[in-house]
Simulated assay, not measured.
Amino acid sequence: MTAPTSALPKTIYAIQHLAFEDLGTLEDTFYEHDYRVRYFEAGVDDLKKAFEFEGLVIILGGPIGVYETEDYPFLNDEIAYLKQRLAKNLPTIGICLGAQLIAHALGAKVYAGHQKEIGWSKLKIQNIPNNPLLPLENTEVLHWHGDTFDLPEHAELLASSEIYPNQAFRIGQNILALQFHVEVAADSMEKWLIGHTCELRKAKINIPQLRHDNEKYAPILESKSPQVLANVMNQLSF
């Protein structure tokens, strides 16, 4: 990652919904450039401090839906804090569930999709002038979700897939939502296969084939994710 040009605080806050879905290779990139990382566990920690942080906050993935507030009441606070954060235009990245939370907080509908999207496939990157954010054309990225969302009002669509049209969007310079996983580390993918075994079997996913694809594509994505991160951080406005 090239050195960020923004005056970004040197601590990154990450909100985690599942132990093995962490910052992955992005965490290593942060450390290489002298950033610190602090994790907050959703459902366990008080997230108010995290969402009020004026530096970069990254909201990570997880297997629950944003609409499951009756079963997971902590989502009510998380969504309320996120709405306040987005209203202040504080720098925020959402990945998978994090992207769905951003879409929901911005007033868009989040709902169960017509099929699970689990596995590796290429994105259709939108041809937007001066859009260097996602240098992932012709690159297989990891999808792992069943829910999808409508595009929020005033959002700029950045990427789509063959199955779901809304794979990435941004609001201005400081708010970015990625439905796909750009952060996965190649040497940690077996954790995903173990931790999500019930979902994989229910969706009739071929686990040996997915493992093979992980081994084939994850190192390539891992080599490109630092540049994605650099592009995002260099556009942040303080």
Rank of each mutant, 00 (worst) to 15 (best):
I125E: 01
G146Y: 04
K109F: 09
E156T: 09
P129S: 06
I125A: 09
A105T: 01
H114R: 15
K109G: 10
T139K: 02
Q126F: 12
A108P: 08
H143L: 09
E137K: 15
E117Y: 05
L158C: 09
K122L: 04
G146E: 06
L106A: 05
L133A: 11
I125R: 00
H145A: 04
E153V: 13
P152Y: 02
L136G: 02
V110T: 04
G113D: 03
I128A: 00
L134A: 07
H114K: 15
E156M: 06
T139R: 00
E137P: 15
T139C: 02
L133E: 07
A108N: 01
P132K: 08
A155S: 03
E140W: 10
I128T: 13
L157Y: 03
H145G: 08
W120Y: 13
L134H: 10
N127P: 09
K124W: 13
P129I: 07
A108V: 07
G113V: 06
I118P: 08
N131R: 12
E156D: 00
V110W: 06
H104I: 08
H154L: 09
Q115R: 15
Y111N: 01
G107R: 03
L136T: 03
E156L: 13
W120L: 07
Q126I: 14
L158S: 05
P132C: 09
L133M: 11
D150L: 08
P129Q: 10
E117H: 13
P129T: 10
V141A: 14
H154W: 08
A108C: 02
G146K: 10
E153K: 14
L123G: 01
A155W: 06
Q115G: 14
I125K: 02
V141F: 04
E140F: 15
E153Q: 15
P129F: 03
P135W: 02
L133I: 12
K122E: 07
L106W: 04
L142Q: 03
H145N: 10
S121N: 07
W120P: 11
H154F: 10
E117K: 02
L123I: 01
I118K: 00
G119V: 09
L123Q: 00
E153S: 14
L134P: 04
G119A: 07
A155P: 01
Q115A: 15
P135Q: 10
N138D: 03
K116H: 14
Q115I: 13
P152W: 02
L142Y: 08
